[in-house]
């Protein structure tokens, strides 16, 4: 049996009491894939990014044994972007900006190889 991960692969800009980042790679599906890769080598990812998403980050997922065949790369479009700021207790946060970009028209498609 394999694990099918459907979710966001994204850019985040984060501010916490300890610092602030520019656009860095994030997204629920990215974190789930990386964390699960320490236990499972049967990970299949279905998501979407724009052509602004770094190839090295896709390679990083592949290096963690994540099958990225279901990761659509939309030419001429931009990756989902989220920006947030954490409060001092780090348990709550405010969303500063959300740009859906490629997510707006995302049609999750299972590659044929994932159906086997």
């Amino acid at each position: 049996m394999s694990i099918l991960i459907v979710g966001t692969v994204a850019f985040d800009a984060i501010e916490t009491p300890f610092g602030k980042t520019d656009k860095i790679v994030g997204g629920a599906a990215t974190y789930i894939s990386l964390a699960a890769s320490f236990f499972s080598n049967k990970l299949r990812l279905v998501s979407v990014v724009g052509d602004d998403f770094p190839k090295e980050s896709i390679q990083m997922l592949k290096d963690h044994k994540v099958d990225t065949e279901g990761l659509q790369i939309k030419e001429g479009e931009k990756t989902f972007f989220w920006s947030g700021k954490y409060h001092n207790d780090m348990n709550s946060r405010d969303t500063v900006d959300t740009q859906l970009n490629v997510l707006e028209t995302f049609d999750p498609i299972l590659p044929e190889s994932f159906t086997r």
Partner: peptide
């Protein structure tokens, strides 16, 4: 940075 902690939990 707590971002992704809940997703990492789900992954593990």
């Amino acid at each position: 940075d707590p971002t992704g902690a809940g997703d990492s939990f789900a992954g593990g």
